[in-house]
Nucleic acid binder design. Sequence first.
DNA 1: GTCTATAAGTTGATAGAC
DNA 2: GTCTATCAACTTATAGAC
Lengths: 208, 208
Amino acid sequence: MNRSSSDPGGPIRQANRELILGAAEKVFARAGFNGATMAAIAEAAGLPKANLHYYFGNKQELYREVLAGTLHDWLVPMDGITPEADPRSAIEQYVRAKMAMSAARPDASRVFANELLHGAPVLGDLVHGELRTMVKRKAAVIDGWIAAGRMTAVDSIHLFFTIWAATQTYADFDVQVRAVLGRSRLTARDHQRAADHVVSMILRGCGL
Amino acid sequence: MNRSSSDPGGPIRQANRELILGAAEKVFARAGFNGATMAAIAEAAGLPKANLHYYFGNKQELYREVLAGTLHDWLVPMDGITPEADPRSAIEQYVRAKMAMSAARPDASRVFANELLHGAPVLGDLVHGELRTMVKRKAAVIDGWIAAGRMTAVDSIHLFFTIWAATQTYADFDVQVRAVLGRSRLTARDHQRAADHVVSMILRGCGL
DNA sequence: GTCTATAAGTTGATAGAC
DNA sequence: GTCTATCAACTTATAGAC
């Protein structure tokens, strides 16, 4: 009996899905949803086009899975923001985690940015749900720190917008960063300098 | 004699170009370069499709003109950053000008963001040229303020990246902002609150 | 300068052999 | 589960009448 066709979680299926998702992230990042073609993603994955439809049904479903994975990864580092934590080190660690993600997987950030830019037609539900819930919870923690006099009064929700913007700009708009800095490629040293800058701006902004 | 066909700067031509550029900004912002169709832009402008080709030749040229106009508008408010200016009020005014632009013409910001996101294939030259030159000049002014002890030492070039990111996020990712805040539309009050937040974060970040 | 009709090319998706 | 061949739909761009 052919096990694979009856086992939706089998190892072949799993491996091929990962392969396709990685290729899709790259192609969607470079070309956007409409600019990306199933043919280009198939080529990047080294598989025939029909296989993408076999695993993901259609283009939008593939796109949605790329986005959902990114959102999940982004929510994880918020875990360090707890009432007991030290505000200064908790915020610094969160900002550094986001900067590291921008440097390590810029394509994931770009696909997400593109989706938001066009009104989140596919990810709308998750943004209204999981993301909003998490931010409200963590903003409450920050409000607690402020009430306890542990940091300057800032708008805690807008603080997240500022942190996301300041960190993700290095992934989303890296052409602009490279053009202005006059670099053809950002080195580890450039990323270090950028991270230190953002951390110190945000911490001073929070009076920390 | 039919003057309009022999006068490339005539009033009919001018008015139609403006009409088309406005419609294009809206459609490109919502759908990206590839997602936008000439048919959709024509419909938004209330003109037949062939007229767009008559005035702009092809889709990419129309797109390029939308972008070039936006970049120009964005460079203007940097004029207030001069050696003689007061650092605090000059930076505050610049940030407020950028926040006002995000609120007033979010589509312009979105088209620009989309272009950068995909590697600036069309605007590359202008980013490497005009933008880079302007930033280097203004960063030198800020370095002068720092050397004179008029503000905290920050990386002056990265400061611009942070300001652009923090301000433009309210245009580019406004769906996210609205979703997290739980608003279907941002009011003037919301924009005021956002502007005050960003201004105070940036000024404290600069030790001002 | 305006507009209809259409040519030429591209793309998402599927059928069906293996 | 893999892959080739192909279709149906859509899009840019232009020709040519007005």
